[in-house]
C-alpha cells in the first residue's frame, strides 16, 4: 500500500461526519434533504470499499456453481431469460437471495425486508 493514512474509507468518513455535523443544520429544507442523500451516498461507498471486493468474489463463485458456463450476473441473467435454469430450481433461488442480501448489505442495510431476512 503506497497511500498514507487516512485510508479512502477514513477520508470519506471525515466528509460524511462534516456534512452531518456542520452543514446539514445550516441549510434550508430542500438542500438539507439533498445533503442527507449525499451522506447516504458516502456511506454506500464506505461499505463498498470495506466489503465490495469480497462480495464480488463470493457472487462469482455462487454463480459459477449453478451455471455450466460463466460466472457473471450477465451470464446468470441470460441463463434465466433463455430458460436454461428452471425458476423452481431451489439452488437458483438460494443464489439470487444470497447475492441480493450481499448487495443490500452495501446499498442499504437498514432496508426493512433485508433486516427481516437477516435477523
Amino acid at each position: 500500500m503506497v497511500f498514507d493514512r487516512p485510508t479512502a474509507f477514513e477520508l470519506l468518513d471525515s466528509v460524511s461526519v462534516f456534512l452531518e455535523e456542520k452543514i446539514k443544520g445550516e441549510l434550508p429544507k430542500h438542500l438539507a434533504f439533498n445533503v442527507q442523500i449525499a451522506i447516504n451516498v458516502i456511506n454506500i461507498v464506505k461499505r463498498e470499499i470495506e466489503n465490495g471486493k469480497e462480495i464480488n468474489e463470493s457472487s462469482k463463485k455462487l454463480i459459477a456453481d449453478i451455471l455450466q458456463q460463466g460466472n457473471s450476473t450477465e451470464s446468470l441473467s441470460k441463463a434465466i431469460k433463455d430458460g436454461k435454469i428452471d425458476l423452481d430450481n431451489k439452488e437458483l433461488q438460494k443464489v439470487l437471495l444470497e447475492i441480493t442480501k450481499m448487495k443490500l448489505s452495501v446499498d442499504n442495510p437498514n432496508y426493512s425486508t433485508y433486516k427481516d431476512l437477516v435477523e
Binding site: K101, K103, L104, V106, N108, T113
Partner: peptide
C-alpha cells in the same frame, strides 16, 4: 440507482 437492490430483495421475498 442503489435502491434497485431494494426492489430485488422485495421481489425475492
Amino acid at each position: 440507482g442503489r435502491r434497485v437492490s431494494e426492489t430485488e430483495i422485495d421481489l425475492i421475498n
